[in-house]
Simulated scan of single mutants.
Amino acid sequence: MNLRPELLPPPVAPVRIAELAAAVTRIAGLMDDGSPYADEIAAFNAGTGGDWTAHDFHVYGEWGSAETFAHLVARPAFPRVPDITRAELIEIARRIMAGPGPQADDPDADWYTLLFDTNLTRPDASALIFHPPAELGPDPTPEQMVDAALEYRPIAL
């Protein structure tokens, strides 16, 4: 299935990725050296519109590389698509499942995971894909995972 443009990873200029990746490694280096870094993070957040913390720079390698983290930073933080359909969610789940996994150096995999989590009310909906519950069986389909996520209803307090 082809996804409509607003569901595809937005392109980011390679020069922007290089700038952001350099900033990420610079900030992480300052942290490793014990040098002051708070002003650098504040400037980074001002330049990206983000709210990244020292922890994010400390663990950026969990996204694969500084470049992959830069893609995440350069793209919308919460890609909410109000009229997303079940069929589109299934295709997104399919793309996540076909990808290299959440810790791989693939910015598109991160985009689809973020898109999936942002457009479902179930907290951490992508956990259904990476760690499916036993009730979905040994090899759940994308349809089963999306349906399980769509069944979630928040508890009113």
Rank of each mutant, 00 (worst) to 15 (best):
residue 2 N to V: 13
residue 4 R to M: 01
residue 5 P to C: 02
residue 8 L to F: 00
residue 9 P to N: 10
residue 9 P to D: 09
residue 9 P to A: 13
residue 13 A to S: 12
residue 23 A to R: 15
residue 24 V to N: 04
residue 24 V to T: 14
residue 27 I to E: 05
residue 29 G to M: 07
residue 29 G to E: 08
residue 31 M to C: 00
residue 34 G to W: 01
residue 34 G to H: 05
residue 42 A to S: 15
residue 43 A to P: 02
residue 45 N to M: 10
residue 48 T to Q: 12
residue 51 D to Q: 15
residue 54 A to K: 09
residue 55 H to D: 05
residue 58 H to G: 14
residue 61 G to T: 12
residue 65 S to P: 06
residue 70 A to G: 10
residue 71 H to R: 07
residue 73 V to S: 09
residue 79 P to Q: 11
residue 85 T to I: 01
residue 86 R to S: 01
residue 88 E to L: 04
residue 89 L to T: 06
residue 90 I to K: 09
residue 92 I to P: 10
residue 92 I to C: 04
residue 92 I to N: 08
residue 93 A to G: 05
residue 97 M to S: 13
residue 97 M to E: 09
residue 99 G to E: 01
residue 102 P to Y: 04
residue 103 Q to W: 13
residue 105 D to H: 06
residue 108 D to S: 14
residue 111 W to H: 11
residue 113 T to R: 15
residue 113 T to W: 09
residue 114 L to K: 12
residue 114 L to P: 00
residue 115 L to V: 03
residue 115 L to F: 06
residue 130 F to K: 06
residue 132 P to K: 06
residue 133 P to E: 11
residue 134 A to W: 09
residue 140 P to V: 12
residue 140 P to F: 10
residue 141 T to F: 03
residue 143 E to R: 06
residue 145 M to W: 02
residue 147 D to S: 14
residue 152 Y to H: 14
residue 156 A to G: 11
residue 156 A to M: 04
residue 156 A to E: 11
